[in-house]
Amino acid sequence: MRGERKYLIVLLLAFVLYVIIQIFNPKPINWTISLAHEDKNPFGAFILDQVIADVFPTGKVDRSYITMYEQQDTLRNNQLILTTGYYPDEQDLDVMLEHVYSGGNVLISAHVFSPLLEDTLNFTVADYIFDADFMKNLENSDSSYIHFVNPALPVAGDFSYQRNNAYRRFSEIDTASMYVVATNDLGQPVTVRVPHGNGNLYLNTTPLAFSNLYLLYKENREFAAATLSMLPDRPLHWAEYYMQGRRESATPLRYILKEPALAWGYYILLAALIIYMVVESKRKQRAIPVIKPLRNSSVDFVNTISSLYYKRKNHRSIADKRISYFLDQLRTKYYLPQNLEGKPLYEKIASKSGHSTEEVETLMTAIMDVKMKREISEQELKNINRYIEEFKL
């Protein structure tokens, strides 16, 4: 026991030491694109979440992790979607377009839009960063600039972004129904307005412009603010489902597994417990006695009763019970009505059992012959039993 205690103490100290080292180690920067309102990493949207209420001073800002289709009866006037890829299904897209048509305003910022939306509004989105022939003609291939085309907007000038974070643009648009709001340094549209019914749909191809990294860079916050200000000053709903999916409820274990140091400590602790249990079980496990199951006496009882009937040569009584049990099985399995008999009954049984009508009629005739006799022989009992056995239910 003393040796085991030393082993556990050493293991526990090693576990605590590892967790402390990991907690106080500087965490590496997480460059994952999340655009989540609580994420403080470069490509999170924590800063946007803190300042977005200033853009809509008289309107309430809230968020959810469900589709527009699921909240179609309670949709707010303004809808904001930030995601790397916007892929609604047909019903969800219909609800969104109907909301805009009835006077709502929706801003969708995404690198990629679903082919369903592109076909519906007649536009395409593409990138140019992988086109070597195109890139070599750029004087500055590292930086891209975005500016608004409407000089009446309160912001002016170029907003700078790293080119590999702002390389998506509208390659084709329907100029009859779409209006360019902002372009990149190549003169290609990156934000368009699509009037639809009584509302407007705004599409943008640079979602990272709303991330923490670029809201803190120079004056880029003005681009995000001006883009959001195209929506009227009304309640805004941030639909995070299209980037985050359905958020599950937070639990202490979920938090532990999300933090690398705590997660590794948790796994080490589990592994140690498993090893300890395996070692202890081999040392202390007792032999498990074999317990014979209780004997089923029902079969013996049935054999005894059947032998009694058979020895007394009460063949008619045995046949009646055999027939009654068979007919009850037949009606129960095939749901046969009680008032059905004769030819209609035979056809009903044949259609449900897979037997021919002639087979059913032969069986029923043999049963009626037995029922009409006061006494039957042993051979007749065997015959009717054979008929019933061969008629597979």
Results as ranks from 00 to 15, higher is better:
V125M: 04
V61T: 15
Q71A: 14
A126S: 14
D92C: 00
V61H: 06
S102K: 15
V125D: 00
Q91F: 08
F113C: 01
E118M: 15
G103C: 10
S64N: 15
P88H: 08
Y87I: 10
V125C: 08
E98Q: 15
H111G: 11
D73Q: 11
L75P: 06
E98T: 15
V100S: 04
Q72H: 11
Q72C: 00
R76Q: 15
D92P: 00
V61D: 04
Y87K: 10
P115L: 01
Q71M: 12
S102C: 03
Y65G: 07
T58N: 15
D94K: 14
H111A: 06
V106D: 03
R63P: 01
V95F: 04
L121Q: 06
S109W: 02
K60G: 03
E118G: 08
H99Y: 07
Q79T: 09
N78T: 06
L97K: 05
T120K: 12
V100T: 11
Y87S: 08
H111E: 14
L107P: 05
G104Q: 10
Q79N: 09
Q79W: 02
P115Q: 10
Y69N: 12
V112R: 14
L107N: 00
L80T: 04
I47N: 01
Y86L: 07
Y87G: 00
D94N: 11
A126T: 15
T58R: 13
S102H: 13
L121G: 05
E98H: 12
T84L: 13
L48P: 02
T84Y: 04
V112P: 00
G103M: 09
D92A: 05
M68N: 15
G85N: 12
S109E: 07
S109F: 08
V95A: 03
S102T: 14
L117Y: 04
V95C: 02
M68T: 07
L121H: 04
T84C: 06
L80D: 07
E90Q: 13
Q79K: 06
T67A: 02
S102F: 11
T67N: 05
A126C: 05
D73S: 12
V55K: 02
E90V: 11
L116H: 04
Y69A: 11
P88K: 07
V55E: 00
S114E: 05
V112Q: 13
T124R: 14
D89W: 01
Q71S: 14
T120G: 03
V100Y: 02
L93F: 06
A53H: 12
V106W: 00
P88N: 08
G104N: 10
R63T: 12
P57Q: 08
Y87A: 05
T74L: 11
